[in-house]
Computed example of a mutant assay.
Amino acid sequence: MSTYETKLIARDIVAADTMIFEFERPQGFDFKAGQAIDLILVETEVAEAKGARHTFSIVSAPFENKLAIATRMRAASTFKLALKRLMVGTPVRIEGPYGSLTLRDNSRRAAVIIAGGIGITPFLSMARQAANDQSSQYLMLVYSNRRPEDAPFLSELTQLERLNVNFRLVATMTQASKSNIHWNGKTGPVDENLLQQAAGHFPEPVYYVAGPPMFVEAMRATLADMGIAESSIHSEDFFGY
C-alpha cells in the first residue's frame, strides 16, 4: 500500500456536526468509487494527535481532481479535535486506497444501496461517478437519517437524481418530528416494506450497505429475511464515524 504527501485545500460543514475536508489529489493516486484511505496527521497543534491515523471512505469521485473525506464531528476524539483545527495548507499523509465496497462490474443487475447517516460517503462517490459517466447501471439509493439537517449531501443527491436517469434517491427520516426543517418525504426506519417498495421490482439486484454497525447488522438481517442471498449483499461498518 502506497503513502502519499498532500495538503488540506478546503473544509466545510455539510450537515449538523458533520464536516467535509478536501485535499490535493496526489499525482498517481488512483482509486475506485467506494474505496477508503487512512489519513495521517503530520502537523497539528494537538500534540498527542501527531502521527495519528484514521480510516475514511473517499467521498470524492475518481474523475475529480481533489480527494475528499467527510465525518461526524460529534465524537469526542483526539483525532477529530485535531482534524477540526487543521488550517488550509496543512500537510498530511494518506495511505491507500483499499477496500472492496465497490460496484460489481455487472450493469445488468441493479445496485440497491442502503446508507445510514455518514455511511453515505462511499455511495456519494459512486453516484457522482455514475452521473459523470452516464452509467447504464441502475442505482437505487435508500438513505436513512434522523432529521433532514443530519443528512449529509442530501441536496446534492437530489441534484444527481435529476442528472442521471439511472439513479433514484429514496430518503427517509426516523425523527422528522424533531426537525426544524419541514420534511414531506418518507419517515420511519428502513424496513422490509420500504425496501420492497423501492427495489422489489428489480430482478436479482445486488445490495450494498454502509453505516453504523447496528444499522448494518439490522439491514443484513432484514435482507436475509427477504430471502436475499448472502452473496448478493456487500456491507461496511463505520465505527466511530
Rank of each mutant, 00 (worst) to 15 (best):
71 T>H: 02
98 Y>T: 00
31 F>I: 02
152 P>N: 07
15 A>E: 05
240 G>P: 00
83 L>S: 07
20 I>C: 03
138 Y>N: 11
60 S>A: 11
40 I>Y: 00
120 I>G: 04
216 V>D: 08
14 V>F: 04
219 M>F: 06
160 L>N: 09
217 E>Q: 14
94 I>R: 01
232 S>N: 15
137 Q>T: 08
1 M>P: 11
37 I>Q: 03
60 S>W: 09
215 F>T: 04
71 T>R: 00
113 I>F: 07
53 R>E: 13
114 I>R: 03
141 L>P: 12
172 T>Q: 08
28 G>S: 01
100 S>K: 12
55 T>K: 03
49 A>C: 02
125 S>N: 04
216 V>F: 07
112 V>W: 12
204 E>R: 14
32 K>E: 14
69 I>E: 00
126 M>Y: 07
196 Q>A: 12
134 Q>F: 05
100 S>N: 13
228 I>Y: 01
122 P>L: 02
95 E>R: 12
193 N>M: 13
71 T>Q: 01
241 Y>W: 14
201 H>F: 14
28 G>D: 02
189 P>H: 14
33 A>Y: 05
76 A>I: 01
223 L>H: 04
221 A>E: 10
150 D>P: 09
53 R>M: 12
48 E>L: 03
197 Q>N: 12
175 Q>E: 15
193 N>A: 15
239 F>E: 00
13 I>T: 13
19 M>E: 13
12 D>H: 04
104 R>C: 09
198 A>C: 15
68 A>L: 01
40 I>V: 15
207 Y>R: 05
109 R>T: 07
226 M>V: 05
66 K>M: 03
230 E>H: 14
180 N>A: 13
30 D>E: 13
104 R>K: 15
135 S>G: 10
236 E>N: 05
90 T>F: 10
69 I>K: 00
201 H>L: 13
65 N>W: 01
207 Y>Q: 05
220 R>T: 13
169 L>C: 10
153 F>E: 08
159 Q>F: 10
6 T>L: 06
162 R>Q: 15
121 T>N: 14
139 L>G: 02
115 A>Q: 08
110 A>M: 04
237 D>R: 12
13 I>Q: 12
215 F>A: 07
98 Y>L: 03
1 M>C: 09
22 E>I: 06
179 S>W: 10
150 D>M: 09
66 K>L: 06
133 D>T: 10
152 P>W: 11
